[in-house]
């Protein structure tokens, strides 16, 4: 919500670049990027946690990692594709955002940079690397939450 407020509020203020060179002639502050859809896996994780109070913590961390990836990757993937479309260019999604020092007709303005798009094996490999990291961070998160509940002073 906090980051979204930067997407929504910043462009309401007028501004002009005062440094050279200027390629993109902007007249107002540029919106922050639309926040990533963490809300989707968060709902899934909450649902899992509500039903698995007694589960082994490492097993639970593994389950949470899988749930996170299964929900977050497709949700953000398709949402990101939507953000590149013309429909997302209005005030709400803030996709008009573009720095003054980069040419506005740049080919990556409304496209993913070809170097940053993974498909096939490199995509699978990336996800396979992500999984153990997600397990580990879930496990740390569980311990952290557990500790937070017990903090007395």
């Amino acid at each position: 919500m906090k980051t979204y407020s930067l997407t929504a509020v910043l462009p309401l203020f007028p501004a002009e670049p005062l440094l050279s060179p200027i390629y993109n002639f902007i007249t107002h502050m540029q919106p922050y990027h639309f926040p990533v859809l963490l809300i989707v896996p968060a709902i899934g994780i909450d649902l899992v946690l509500m039903r698995s109070k007694k589960m082994n913590k490492w097993l639970l961390a593994g389950l949470l990692a899988v749930v996170f990836l299964l929900l977050f990757v497709p949700a953000q993937w398709y949402f990101a594709e939507f953000l590149q479309t013309e429909a997302a260019r209005g005030w709400f999604f803030g996709r008009s955002s573009w720095a003054y020092m980069t040419p506005p007709d740049s080919f990556i303005r409304y496209n993913f940079h070809p170097e940053y798009v993974d498909t096939g094996w490199s995509l699978v490999k990336g996800l396979l690397i992500t999984l153990p990291i997600a397990v580990l961070s879930s496990r740390i998160g569980l311990s952290w939450g557990n500790w937070m509940k017990q903090v007395k002073r």
């Binding site: 002009e16 670049p17 005062l18 440094l19 050279s20 060179p21 200027i22 390629y23 002639f25």
Partner: peptide, 15 residues
Amino acid sequence: ARPVYWSAGLQGTPT
């Protein structure tokens, strides 16, 4: 005074 780049020209230069 203002800095004018060859690549950006006069219109690509601030006040």
